[in-house]
C-alpha cells in the first residue's frame, strides 16, 4: 500500500524538476512581465521624469515662474535664454511648465487616490453584503451617473467655489461612483467563489474574509481601473482650471496656462500649445502604463 502513496523515484525526479521552476511570487511575476514590456517601461520613465522635474522645479527651473518682463512678451521658441519662449506676461515658459507639473500632477493623482480608497471600500461593502446595503450604496452612486463627468465636476466645483482644495473635492466625488461600481461588480463575482466558502469552512469570520480574501482579489482589477482614471482626472482638472474653477493665477498650472495663453494663439501658436502638449503626454503615459499593468497582471491561472 505504501508503494502506491509514496512517489516512485521517477515521480520524485519529475516533481523536483517542477519545484525548481516555481515559487516566484505573484507580484514578482507581474513585475518581470511589466519590465519586459518596452511601452510600459518607456511610459514609466517619462512619468518618473515628470514627477522628479515637478518636485525639484524650484532647483531646476532657470527663472522664477511668476516673474516676467513685459519687454520679452511672447518670445518665440528657441529664444536665447528662454528655450521654450515666454508667455503673454513675459514669464519663462520652461520654468512655468516645470513648476506647473506640481499642481497638475497633484490634481491628477490625489482625487483618484482618495476616490480609490473610498470607492473601493464602498464597493466592497455593497458587493459583499448585498441586499438592501447594496441597493442603498449602489443606487446612491447611480445618481452621479446621471450627469456627464465634466458637467458634474464643474457643477460641484462651482457650488463649492473656486480653489485648489475644492477642485480636489469635486474631482474626488466625480470618481468615487465609477470606482465603487467596478469594486462592487468584482466583489460580487469573488464573493461566490469556492475559496471564500473554503475560508469560511476553516473558521474565518466576515471581517477576515473581506480583509484578506475579497480585498486581496479585488484590489488588483480596481487598481488597474483607477490608473486609467488618472489621465481623465488630469484633463478634468485642467478643464476646471481653464474655466477658472481650479487654481488661481499666477500659480502655474497646465490647464490654467492653456487658458491664459488662449488669446495668444494667433501670435505664438506653438507656445500656446505647450501646456496642452504636457497634459497630452502625461495622460497618454498614464493610459499606456495602465494598459501594460493590466496585461502584466493577467496571468493565466
Amino acid at each position: 500500500m505504501t508503494s502506491i502513496i509514496s512517489p516512485t523515484s521517477k515521480e520524485k525526479f519529475a516533481l523536483a524538476a517542477e519545484t525548481a521552476a516555481v515559487s516566484r511570487g505573484y507580484w514578482t511575476t507581474v513585475w518581470t512581465r511589466l519590465v519586459r514590456d518596452p511601452v510600459s517601461v518607456g511610459c514609466a520613465v517619462v512619468l518618473l521624469l515628470m514627477v522628479l522635474i515637478a518636485v525639484f522645479a524650484p532647483l531646476l527651473a532657470p527663472y522664477d515662474p511668476s516673474q516676467g518682463t513685459m519687454l520679452k512678451r511672447l518670445s518665440p521658441i528657441g529664444t536665447e535664454g528662454h528655450w521654450l519662449g515666454t508667455d503673454e506676461l513675459g514669464r519663462d515658459m520652461l520654468s512655468r511648465l516645470m513648476h506647473g507639473g506640481q499642481m497638475s500632477l497633484m490634481m491628477g493623482l490625489l482625487p483618484v487616490f482618495i476616490a480609490f480608497a473610498i470607492g473601493t471600500s464602498l464597493g466592497l461593502i455593497a458587493g459583499f453584503f448585498g441586499g438592501w446595503i447594496n441597493s442603498l450604496i449602489m443606487r446612491t452612486t447611480d445618481v452621479f451617473f446621471a450627469f456627464p463627468a465634466v458637467l458634474l465636476a464643474i457643477a460641484i466645483s462651482g457650488a463649492l467655489g473656486a480653489g485648489f482644495v475644492n477642485a480636489i473635492i469635486s474631482l474626488t466625488l466625480v470618481f468615487i461612483p465609477p470606482i465603487a461600481r467596478v469594486a462592487e461588480s468584482v466583489t460580487t463575482s469573488v464573493r461566490n467563489l469556492d475559496f471564500v466558502e473554503a475560508a469560511r469552512a476553516s473558521g474565518a469570520g466576515n471581517f477576515t474574509i473581506i480583509r484578506v480574501h475579497v480585498l486581496g482579489n479585488v484590489l488588483g482589477p480596481v487598481f488597474i481601473y483607477a490608473t486609467s482614471l488618472v489621465s481623465v482626472c488630469m484633463i478634468l482638472a485642467a478643464g476646471l482650471s481653464f474655466l477658472g474653477l481650479g487654481v488661481r493665477p499666477p500659480t502655474p498650472e497646465w490647464g490654467l496656462m492653456l487658458n491664459t495663453l488662449r488669446q495668444s494663439i494667433y501670435i505664438q501658436p506653438w507656445i500656446s500649445v505647450l501646456p496642452g502638449l504636457m497634459i497630452f503626454i502625461t495622460s497618454l503615459c498614464f493610459n499606456l502604463l495602465s494598459d501594460g499593468l493590466r496585461s502584466a497582471m493577467d496571468i493565466k491561472r
Binding site: L193, D194, F195, E197, A198, R200, A201, S202, G203, V212
Partner: peptide, 19 residues
C-alpha cells in the same frame, strides 16, 4: 469550523485563494 469539523472541497483549484 476548521477546528472540530473540517472540510476538503471537490475542486482544489477553486478552494484555494489564488493571490
Amino acid at each position: 469550523r476548521g477546528k472540530t469539523v473540517s472540510m476538503v472541497f471537490q475542486e482544489p483549484m477553486l478552494a484555494f485563494d489564488p493571490v
